[in-house]
Design a protein around this nucleic acid. Structure first.
Lengths: 212, 212
DNA sequence: TAGATTGTTAATCGATTAACAATC
DNA sequence: TAGATTGTTAATCGATTAACAATC
């Protein structure tokens, strides 16, 4: 099988496939055709078949796809069984919510450390983890080698901290800090989440809709 | 000016333009060329000019774009001066974090009510708003006519609640509930935010990178 | 005026859709 | 076998990039 490059739109759809297949499994549905899945997901059957065939032929002519099997395959592609070490920086409202609300384990990640520079909350804990002072960051990374950092910090601190973290071995960022990290190192992966942009997009659509 | 339909990729870039122009303004930069802006944002100059020209010619040949003016124009397109009434349902960790962390006003929205079905937290407050019981939802909507609902509730409750909210006049959802709302009504706008999918995308990219 | 940079048209690239032979 | 549905190739559509005349 030639190792082709998977396009971004396909990658972005994978977690959604995984989610819908989980749903189907919970509904005890054993097999599904691309046509049925397309209807549920609001995609085209053609697109679904194209997407899956980026990775290989998981279906069976005349039958469709075996839900459980397909879900496992996509889970493996996504790496849900990995145990990537994750630290979270900034245990304010948002940081704490993410630490406790997001199921890292289900997604191949393990939250192993939480840091904040506010002495008032150091020592308290979130998601069963003690909030550590920033001064411990260095030693912690040297000891536990986390790979991913979740940034829930103000935007002015983001770029500098990111660079420090890279030097400590971090090569993946889940960035909530209202600032687009620009990392030149091609081995570092950044996933920017801009909640504000998302709300603004919704606001625009509502606003436009009104004026039509 | 013919009213053309703006494509989704363009719409998704608008909040980002707005953000970067704000940054430039803060840096006291008066004018910028599409070329300079492209470098900063990691886009192409051509794309930027195309994007802006969906809405009209905001630039000046030989000069570029006036930062402050352009930012205001894009802000108006996005509707940042609107005061769309917003309610938030589900004041758990995530709900509270969003209520307090997201600046609704800057984005043409105003958070006017927070609801939760947990009696233990009813009466306490977030973001200066009292958390109200779900039973008050009906009356509140009839009185204040909010247009947008932020859903920070478990996925099993989402679809049903969304339908109820639509009947109460809500026509926009900012949906954090691990479930893709499927609304048939074309006047209702849904912005799904799947934090889990975002993390999984990052996990995939890390995982793939390792195996290369 | 000369230089710079836009607005806009044409060319290219990539993603989605359609079609159908292969095959379970 | 007949029916269904995949895997895959070709056609279409749309978005991005390139090019350049218009013009500040």
């Amino acid at each position: 099988m030639a190792k082709q490059v998977i396009s971004t739109p396909v990658i972005r759809r994978l977690p959604r496939y995984y989610r819908f297949l989980g749903e189907l499994e919970r509904e005890h549905i054993e097999r599904i055709s691309s046509r049925e899945l397309a209807m549920r997901m609001g995609l085209s059957a053609s697109q679904i078949r194209q997407d899956f065939n980026c990775f290989g032929g998981f279906g069976q002519q005349g039958y469709g796809y075996h839900v459980k099997e397909l879900r496992e395959i996509i889970g493996n592609i996504l790496g849900v069984h990995c145990k990537t070490g994750v630290i979270l920086i900034g245990a304010g409202n948002l940081g704490k919510a993410i630490a406790s609300h997001v199921d890292f384990r289900k997604r191949g990640c393990e939250l192993i450390g939480v840091f904040d520079n506010n002495p008032l909350i150091q020592g308290t804990s979130t998601a069963d983890l003690p909030i550590m002072p920033m001064e411990s960051l260095d030693n912690f990374c040297k000891q536990h080698h986390p790979q991913v950092a979740v940034l829930c910090i103000p935007k002015d601190a983001a770029q500098q901290l990111a660079e420090q973290l890279i030097s400590l071995g971090i090569n993946g960022f889940w960035n909530f800090s209202h600032f687009d990290l620009r990392i030149t190192n091609p081995d570092v992966i950044v996933e920017n989440v801009h909640l504000g942009d998302s709300l603004l997009t919704l606001a625009y659509c509502m606003h436009r809709h009104e004026n039509e």
